[in-house]
Structures are given as C-alpha cells and as structure tokens.
Simulated assay, not measured.
Amino acid sequence: MKKTTTASVVACLMLVLAGCSEPAPLPRVPDVVGMDGAAAEDSLADYEVEFDAGDDHVFIRSNWNVDSMDPAAGSPLQEGETVVLSVSKPDAEESPEPSETSSTPAPTAAPVQPAGPTTTSSGLDAGWAVTACDQYGQDTYVYGWNGDWLIDGTSQIVDDKWFLKAGADITNAFGAERRATVECTVVGSNGAPLVESFLDY
C-alpha cells in the first residue's frame, strides 16, 4: 500500500514538473507593411530579410514600399529565420482630373528631358541606369558615397548605352571627403542593368 501511494505521488510530481518546463513563446514578427524597404529591414534586424520585387531588382531599399510580408505580422518566428517582403515602387501621385465646370486650366508640367529616345533598344531607361551607377558607387566606395545625380548630373543615350555624368562626394578609409566627377556607362535592360564602365576624377 505504501509503495503504491509513493509511486502515485512521484508520478504526480513528474507531471507538475513537466508542465513547468514549457519552452518560452517565440517572438512575434513586427508589422512592416507600408514602410519603405530600408526601414522595414531595420525593424526586422533579428531576422533574415529577402525582397521580392517580381521581375525587378531591389538595389536601393528605401526606393521601395512593402506591400505584404511572409510570414504575416504577428506570426511566431525564431531569430535568424527568413521574412520575405513583397515590394513595389511607389507610384507618382496623379493629379486630379480637372472639373468640367472649372475655368482654370490644369498646369502643364515642364518636360524633364530633352526630345530624343528615353530608353535603349534593349529596354533600359534613365532611372534604372542611375540606380545601377549609384549602387556601383556604394559598392566601390564603402566608406562613403553620395552621387549627386539629380542636381549635378546629366544623362544621354550614346551608341545605344546610357552615359551618365555627375558630381559625387566620396569618403576614404580615414574619413577624408573629396568631391569628384563620375562618368558611368550602363548597358542591359531594366530587369538586368549592367555598369560597363565607371570612372571618377
């Protein structure tokens, strides 16, 4: 009788102890939908992050918006596991249609580029050419790179390639900064732009 009672007490204690050793719950994935890609990646610093832009390539993360994420926000996930972010480029704001009763005509936007071709025969436009050159500059000058493509830059199609020229601030390993002129030639398509030559002086 004593042996049976003792065995029952031991069995009960084992069940109680087993219940106490439950693993801690996994952390929940934060919601980054609606953020730009760079901010979303910072928020997901504990996880591996992959960007899914369909057929496009994500060069500068801050130029993309997060549309959805897998796993969904709030899902339990171990640190170091992968979160896939589906991203897209934000659309330029469309101006509202003018009202039929409006007497004021809608303003006409000034042309940004001179007349001429805006894409190469392989389907490469200026925006993707600039993105490729900027990414090349960041990869080459790891201590500091700031290409001034918009204010201090020019671009044109020469021999069916994009030729870009701009000013850039470059920092070396010792923190010294210099202003340089950069010339960059890009070939390929929007889906796969390729920097053919890159020169600074």
Score class of each variant (00 low, 15 high):
96 P>D: 14
39 A>F: 04
44 L>R: 05
70 D>T: 11
13 L>P: 11
14 M>S: 08
29 V>H: 07
61 R>C: 02
74 G>Y: 11
199 L>N: 07
6 T>P: 01
110 A>M: 09
72 A>E: 09
78 Q>N: 10
108 T>Y: 13
47 Y>N: 03
88 S>R: 04
194 L>K: 03
89 K>V: 10
87 V>P: 02
60 I>E: 05
46 D>Q: 06
57 H>V: 05
89 K>W: 10
186 V>G: 02
86 S>D: 06
128 W>N: 09
54 G>D: 00
163 F>E: 03
201 Y>I: 03
95 S>R: 15
197 S>I: 00
112 V>E: 13
78 Q>I: 07
33 V>D: 00
77 L>C: 09
8 S>A: 15
12 C>I: 15
194 L>A: 04
160 D>C: 11
188 G>N: 07
199 L>A: 06
118 T>Q: 11
122 S>I: 01
127 G>T: 10
168 A>S: 12
176 A>C: 09
115 A>W: 13
95 S>C: 11
182 V>Q: 04
57 H>Y: 01
9 V>A: 13
112 V>M: 14
107 P>W: 13
171 T>H: 09
63 N>D: 10
141 Y>G: 06
7 A>F: 14
67 D>T: 03
47 Y>D: 04
146 N>L: 13
11 A>C: 15
40 A>S: 01
62 S>Q: 05
157 I>H: 05
29 V>P: 05
90 P>I: 07
1 M>K: 14
72 A>S: 08
76 P>D: 06
30 P>C: 03
191 G>H: 09
19 G>H: 09
116 G>H: 11
9 V>I: 15
113 Q>E: 11
187 V>R: 08
160 D>T: 08
117 P>E: 14
64 W>R: 00
75 S>G: 08
127 G>K: 12
145 W>F: 15
51 F>K: 00
34 G>C: 01
164 L>P: 02
169 D>F: 09
130 V>H: 01
141 Y>S: 06
182 V>N: 04
171 T>L: 12
103 S>A: 13
80 G>E: 08
133 C>I: 00
17 L>R: 08
16 V>A: 15
33 V>Q: 02
11 A>R: 11
163 F>V: 03
82 T>Y: 07
69 M>S: 06
102 S>L: 10
146 N>S: 12
97 E>L: 15
152 D>G: 06
113 Q>P: 02
171 T>S: 10
81 E>M: 12
180 A>C: 14
181 T>R: 09
96 P>H: 12
198 F>I: 01
126 A>D: 01
15 L>A: 13
135 Q>Y: 08
109 A>I: 07
192 A>G: 01
153 G>Q: 06
81 E>G: 03
200 D>L: 02
51 F>W: 01
3 K>A: 14
45 A>Q: 00
124 L>P: 04
44 L>Y: 05
188 G>V: 06
184 C>I: 00
17 L>Y: 14
135 Q>M: 10
39 A>K: 06
69 M>Q: 14
4 T>L: 15
123 G>Q: 04
35 M>N: 05
140 T>C: 08
59 F>S: 00
182 V>P: 03
76 P>A: 06
20 C>L: 15
110 A>S: 09
52 D>S: 00
30 P>S: 02
68 S>W: 03
79 E>R: 12
41 E>A: 09
84 V>M: 07
156 Q>P: 02
73 A>R: 12
58 V>Q: 02
21 S>A: 15
71 P>T: 03
161 K>V: 05
159 D>I: 04
104 T>V: 15
192 A>V: 03
194 L>D: 04
68 S>M: 03
9 V>T: 08
74 G>C: 10
114 P>H: 10
